[in-house]
Design a protein around this nucleic acid. Structure first.
Lengths: 212, 212
DNA sequence: GCAGGATCGTATGGACCCAAACGTTTTTGC
DNA sequence: GCAAAAACGTTTGGGTCCATACGATCCTGC
């Protein structure tokens, strides 16, 4: 039903492939199912509430954030939506062309750009969001309130941990990898020659979309 | 630290925006954190183990699936990876050009295309995957085995429910929406005029990546 | 045998997505 | 005051991603 192969078959195949190496299959299953579930949920929204209003997932999330906060600088919108500011530029342009959102430049700081919904944008969200929320409930059908809360708590824990310790960990991991033979293995010798020298300013996007 | 606004502020703002409407904030928080966590985890992998071997998330998942199953028809690879077959064509081409994977056409059915890793592809995964698994563990730091298992169980439950009931639900939701004023609202009157007539064959991608 | 249909992988177009580079505007240091 | 630095949104280039529309190949019924 779900996958082409069962869990047990997969684990067996992985074990064969990795022989004696010590692997944490529990962590593997958890992380794997995290992406599986997120993908299934997102797909469900795209195929139900979003499809006939012709909104992408990202477009909807942007509308949602701007709707909730009335108006917001693009930088913060990108952070809240979990996308890069460069991506947001394009998405906002699309939504603006459809008359759902406007961009304004505040006179006191003309570097900024502030997003806000149009009347029709607000009307759309007022009509759309309750349906969206109903599908959120649908995706959790069969779970008790207690289990849903436990799920939320666990996920929050992961997010917090990664946000607090991820950057340091990433640096360490990358250092270890660059000392290994992995890079040449991956590219086949012909190096990618990244300029790497001049880092400008703002890096790294936020980890995620929507509220807390 | 984490977001620009706190959870409580967000809920307050949502409540203001939706006044008396009945919303399930618990479901909202769970679904929201699901995406937040998935995004944080994926981002962590991209910035740690994948970055200096110059693999995208999707590229890695494709390699992983092909690695585990030795060789596999592209259709099934796409399903297992949670991407469309059209997307896979491009990704496979990229990986092939880097000498990590090869495509072969079986003589008995020349419509098919079968993927398998090259020697270097296998070597890469043997070296890379244990590091990947270590980061999976890292993302779950601080959770007991019991909580991790509970997380997995809950997520599996969601995936299963959506896979079994999603399609029907989506049809119902879309019917309800097309009876409402939402479509015109969203597009501003000027209809999108989708051809809509000729549905060919295979629709709908699989919901997810990686094992069970 | 041989049309018609089903199913395969691929090509295309448009949206998304990030990293990096860029130009403008504001802030900082002196 | 005024250059240098910082911060902003946007642009660009390359890759992913889906839906759709193919062309090619198998399969089916007659």
């Amino acid at each position: 039903m779900t996958g082409y192969y069962t869990l047990r078959e997969t684990e067996k195949a992985v074990t064969e492939r990795l022989g004696g190496l010590e692997l944490d299959f529990g962590a593997m299953a958890a992380v794997s199912n995290l992406h599986r579930a997120a993908s299934a949920v997102r797909n469900h929204f795209e195929q139900s509430v979003l499809r006939d209003v012709d909104l992408t997932w990202t477009g909807f999330v942007v509308l949602w954030v701007v709707w909730i906060w009335e108006e917001m600088e693009t930088k913060h919108v990108a952070e809240e939506c979990g996308i890069s500011k460069g991506t947001l530029t394009g998405v906002a342009k699309t939504l603006e062309s459809r008359g759902l959102l406007v961009r304004t430049v505040p006179p006191d700081d003309r570097r900024l750009s502030v997003l806000s919904l149009t009347g029709r944008g607000r009307e759309l969200m007022t009509e759309l969001f309750p349906r969206f929320n109903a599908e959120e409930q649908f995706t959790l059908t069969g779970l008790t309130d207690r289990r849903t809360q436990e799920l939320t708590r666990t996920l929050r824990h992961m997010v917090k941990h990664i946000e607090e310790n991820g950057e340091e960990r990433e640096a360490r991991v990358r250092a270890s990898i660059s000392d290994s033979k992995l890079p040449e293995l991956a590219t086949g010798g012909r190096q990618q020659q990244k300029p790497a020298g001049t880092r400008r300013t703002d890096p790294r996007r936020r980890t995620s979309p929507k509220p807390g």
